[in-house]
Amino acid sequence: MFYKGERIAVFIDGANFFSAAKALNFEIDYRLLREEFMRRGKLVRMSYHIALLENDEFTTLRPLVDWLCYNGYSVASKTAREYTDPQGRRKVKSNVAIDIAVASLELSPHVDHIVLFSGDGDLRPLVEAIKRTGVRVSIVSTIRSQPSMISDELRRTADNFIELDQLKAVISRPARQHTAAEHDEPENELAEAAAS
């Protein structure tokens, strides 16, 4: 799926990627993830997109975002909006698909292969547009979760589909003990962003 010497750009929908890894029961080691794609070709850009809650001066995601910024990732964050639905449930509205679309289209003339870590069906027109420029597109997500984390239309449109479960052994963090606060807060925040 990857050719020696090809220029690669990777775009990660942070909340979607987190949810897919959680569904497969593993934690992502972002250092190993970057190293994996450096081995696969000439890594031009490793871009991580995330929505953070407005009016939240400290977020449990801040340490991850800071680490990514200092370790070879281009991080694009935007503000997520929190609201209460008619049933009184707290909801978070965030969507980074348009940000990923703009960034990947701008970079497509400078790469041979774009890898999208997302299963969001809204990205199908983006994949079609990138392919028309002659750039190959791979999608990384999973069909091994219940329900599947990838849109069938997106999977069919891409040049390649990479099953996240097959990358698990290469990019997962070793298991470690968590405190309750350490375990719950980041997952809840990312899961809420992914669900919207």
Rank of each mutant, 00 (worst) to 15 (best):
F161Q: 04
A181Q: 15
S104P: 11
H178S: 04
G88L: 07
S151L: 01
R176I: 05
R155A: 00
D120M: 03
V96K: 00
L167W: 14
V115S: 14
F117G: 07
F117W: 10
E106R: 14
D99N: 14
I98A: 13
Q146K: 05
Q166G: 11
S141L: 05
G121V: 09
P174Q: 15
L105P: 09
P109A: 09
K91Q: 15
M149R: 02
D122E: 14
R132D: 14
T142E: 02
I139L: 07
R144G: 03
Y83A: 08
V92M: 14
R124W: 07
E128P: 03
K91E: 13
S145W: 02
I114W: 06
I162P: 12
V135L: 08
S94T: 04
P186E: 00
K168H: 11
D112C: 06
I139Q: 04
E182T: 06
I143Y: 03
V96T: 12
S94R: 01
D152T: 04
R173H: 08
G88P: 11
L126I: 12
T84Q: 07
R90Y: 08
E106M: 12
R132A: 11
V111F: 06
A175I: 10
V111N: 04
L126V: 14
Y83P: 03
T157A: 13
D159I: 01
S108F: 01
T133H: 10
T179D: 12
V170H: 13
H113E: 07
R144M: 06
F117H: 07
S94Y: 03
I171C: 06
V92T: 08
K93C: 09
L154D: 00
N188A: 10
S108H: 04
N160P: 01
S94M: 04
S172L: 05
T84M: 07
N188H: 12
E163T: 09
D165L: 14
S145G: 01
R136N: 11
K93F: 09
L116H: 04
S141I: 04
N160Q: 10
N188Y: 14
S108M: 05
I143F: 05
Q166I: 11
L167A: 10
R89S: 07
A175H: 15
D120Q: 03
P125K: 13
I139N: 03
R90T: 06
E187F: 14
L107I: 12
D85I: 02
D99M: 11
T133F: 05
I162V: 15
A175Q: 15
V102G: 09
S172E: 15
